[in-house]
């Protein structure tokens, strides 16, 4: 039998609209619940669509060349320096957080013994970290890096603060990616006489790479969108940073400053578009890689 014939079968067990309505007539409460469920879902989606479309409509006309001028001044409120600062702070954060995150994940998935008490503590702590709000990170960064280490408001202080903040994300996604690597790969490598380290570095890590990458990109999304953790660590100085010990605002901080001052509404809309597109683009890229990965398996 081919597809066409199957399609043409006049099945008697198809639930028709009339049947469903008859059902609901007897049980009106079910209809009410169904409508509520559909409405709620519609509302969730509409909230998103409305938010994004509204920002695009208000912001896109304001994406003028002035907004992307190399030099910031209080007339053009260019977001270009802030974008570059964001890139710098992102790179710096990753340089700090990625080795620690991946190292920790390798320890948890490859070296730690099952049921190890310490592993439990590490996981609990990572979970605790991921529940701490960014303003608390900001306070900590200010007290520790800015004040105690006397780095002052600086990109470096901001990057260290963010590094601790995104550490649990990188740890978790990397660990998941490592666990997903089949044991046969490890056994194969051991069978060829490779040691533990060689197996991990040459066999396990490369096959977990896409998963790790998805996690790192997710972390980038968080860094780019972060405000509260940076405002009292990296500071909100305008203009391009002059090195890691210099203070500088990222795009999200820039956005906050514009919104708070309320003087440059049009430019604020434009900046909102840039920020929104950037973060959503990064997140979409991350989930795209993650999905690619899971469909390959």
């Amino acid at each position: 039998m081919d597809d066409k014939e199957i399609k043409e079968i006049a099945a008697i067990n198809k639930i028709t609209f009339a049947q469903r309505m008859r059902e609901y007539k007897r049980k009106p409460l079910s209809l009410v619940m169904f409508i509520l469920v559909v409405l709620a879902a519609a509302l969730s989606v509409l909230a998103l669509v409305f938010l994004i479309v509204y920002i695009l409509v208000m912001g896109v006309p304001n994406l003028t060349p002035d907004l992307f001028a190399w030099e910031y001044n209080s007339d053009n409120v260019s977001c270009m320096p802030a974008i570059i600062n964001t890139v710098v702070i992102t790179l710096l954060t990753l340089v700090i957080a990625v080795p620690f995150g991946i190292g920790a994940a390798i320890y948890l998935s490859e070296y730690a013994k099952r049921g190890n008490k310490l592993v439990k503590v590490i996981r609990t702590m990572a979970e605790t970290l991921s529940g701490i709000p960014s303003i608390v990170y900001g306070l900590f960064g200010m007290l520790c890096f800015v004040t105690a280490f006397s780095w002052g408001y600086s990109i470096l202080a901001g990057a260290f603060t963010l590094a601790i903040m995104v550490l649990p994300t990188i740890m978790r996604t990397t660990e998941e990616a490592l666990i997903a690597v089949p044991d046969s790969y490890r056994e194969g490598s051991f069978g060829l006489g490779a040691g533990k380290l060689r197996t991990v570095v040459k066999t396990v890590l490369p096959s977990a790479m896409p998963g790790i990458l998805a996690g790192v990109i997710l972390a980038i999304g968080r860094i780019v969108g972060e405000t509260a953790a940076l405002i009292y660590t990296a500071g909100s100085t305008t203009g391009l940073v002059d090195g890691v010990m210099d203070s500088g605002r990222t795009l999200a901080i820039h956005m906050y400053m514009l919104a708070n001052e309320g003087l440059h509404t049009n430019q604020a809309w434009g900046t909102a578009v840039v920020l929104l597109v950037l973060v959503l683009g990064i997140n979409t890229l991350s989930s795209f890689i993650a999905k690619k990965l899971s469909s390959k398996k």
């Binding site: 199957i6 079968i9 006049a10 099945a11 008697i12 067990n13 198809k14």
Partner: peptide, 14 residues
């Protein structure tokens, strides 16, 4: 009619 839950299940007859 518990087969109604199964996707792609088609019944004919009476």
């Amino acid at each position: 009619r518990m087969n109604d839950l199964v996707e792609g299940c088609k019944i004919t007859g009476d």
